[in-house]
């Protein structure tokens, strides 16, 4: 009886949680504990890849539900959902869904260098509102070991107005190349695009790895900027400069519009788009410009004095006597 009560209680909590945050589906690079042995983090961007006989070849990403990066549940994909993957050339490519009894994962080959765009779209009517949820992720594929055939510079974001009604893109910075990583302490700017055009007044919620949240509304250019706060604190001797944390961005906007979807009438359309990405600790945590300058100037002064003293104590301009050839 106790067990049954517990199961009912757990089900109720789960239902409440899913009703409250059900639309907040997002795509995660982190594997569930049960799958961690089958997955390896590869490349400089630490993408989850399936372990195979010939090494890690396919990228794998998981569908999750919730607004917490660490606590969100792994979810199963909806059979009516649309799954889209675009390669760096904006060509639609195949993506496979692997499902088990509690989670779904998306698996694909990342053969080309650059950003792959993965989208998972669902549409359903709930309480007179058509909820259009889109989980999106930009997946950067690059390995220095394959050389740098392409330009190592700024890679612009891609828009998919035809396929995605409301898209979130991260504005690129000058340093945004194939090696770029967002770091904590950095301001990251996002743009909300509705039908490919900037969307004003979109509610943007940024959630950090440890659960810190901030809410902003986009301006007339569809822009909202967040500072990614530092939430990784540890002792110096165990500090991991490549400690990957993830943030989750949830963008929401409701429009008044009537219609019928799958024989259900609605009076509003609510778009919820999520975007997640990894970030690293700030370089200022472990790199010191001041110490660099101190070492530089001490070396310059010390070596200059050494050269001066050496040249004064020794005849450094010894004349070299060239051996004359025999004919002379």
């Amino acid at each position: 009886m106790k067990l049954l009560l517990r199961a009912v209680l757990a089900f109720c909590i789960l239902m409440m949680f899913s009703l409250q945050t059900g639309a907040q589906i997002w795509i995660s690079n982190s594997a569930p504990k049960e799958s961690s042995s089958k997955v390896a983090l590869t490349g400089m961007h630490k993408l989850s890849t399936l372990r195979g006989k010939r090494g890690s070849t396919k990228v794998i990403q998981w569908l999750r539900s919730g607004s917490s990066v660490e606590e969100s549940l792994f979810s199963q994909a909806d059979s009516s959902a649309v799954l889209l993957l675009f390669d760096p050339q904006k060509q639609k490519v195949a993506v496979e869904t692997i499902a088990d009894h509690y989670s779904s994962a998306f698996v694909f080959n990342n053969t080309d260098e650059g950003f792959y765009n993965l989208f998972y779209l669902t549409e359903k009517v709930h309480n007179d509102t058509l909820l259009i949820a889109c989980a999106s992720r930009e997946i950067l594929n690059h390995s220095c070991r394959n050389g740098h055939a392409k330009e190592l510079k700024y890679i612009p974001y891609k828009t998919f107005a035809d396929a995605i009604p409301m898209q979130i893109v991260r504005e690129r910075t000058k340093a945004d190349d194939l090696h770029y990583f967002v770091t904590s302490g950095e301001f990251v700017t996002f743009r909300a695009l509705y039908d490919g055009k900037p969307a004003e007044g979109v509610k943007m919620t940024l959630v950090s790895q440890k659960g810190w949240k901030k809410v902003l509304f986009t301006d007339d250019e569809g822009i909202a900027s967040f500072e990614i706060i530092q939430d990784y604190f540890t002792n110096w001797n165990v500090f991991d400069v490549k400690k990957i944390h993830n943030y989750l961005l949830i963008a929401e906007k409701t429009f008044t519009e009537t219609g019928i979807h799958q024989q259900k009438a609605f009076t509003h359309i609510k778009y919820v788009t999520t975007y997640s990405e990894a970030y690293l600790p700030a370089k200022t945590n472990y790199m010191s410009f001041v110490w660099g300058l101190i070492v530089f100037f001490i070396t310059v002064i010390a070596s200059s004095i050494a050269v001066y003293v050496y040249r004064n104590r020794r005849n450094v301009l010894k004349k070299h006597n060239y051996e004359l050839p025999s004919k002379y």
């Binding site: 110096w236 500090f239 400069v241 370089k283 472990y286 790199m287 010191s288 410009f289 110490w291 660099g292 300058l293 070492v295 530089f296």
Partner: peptide
Amino acid sequence: DTSQIFIDFT
């Protein structure tokens, strides 16, 4: 760009 003048304490 002065970003390469650093001591890395990692």
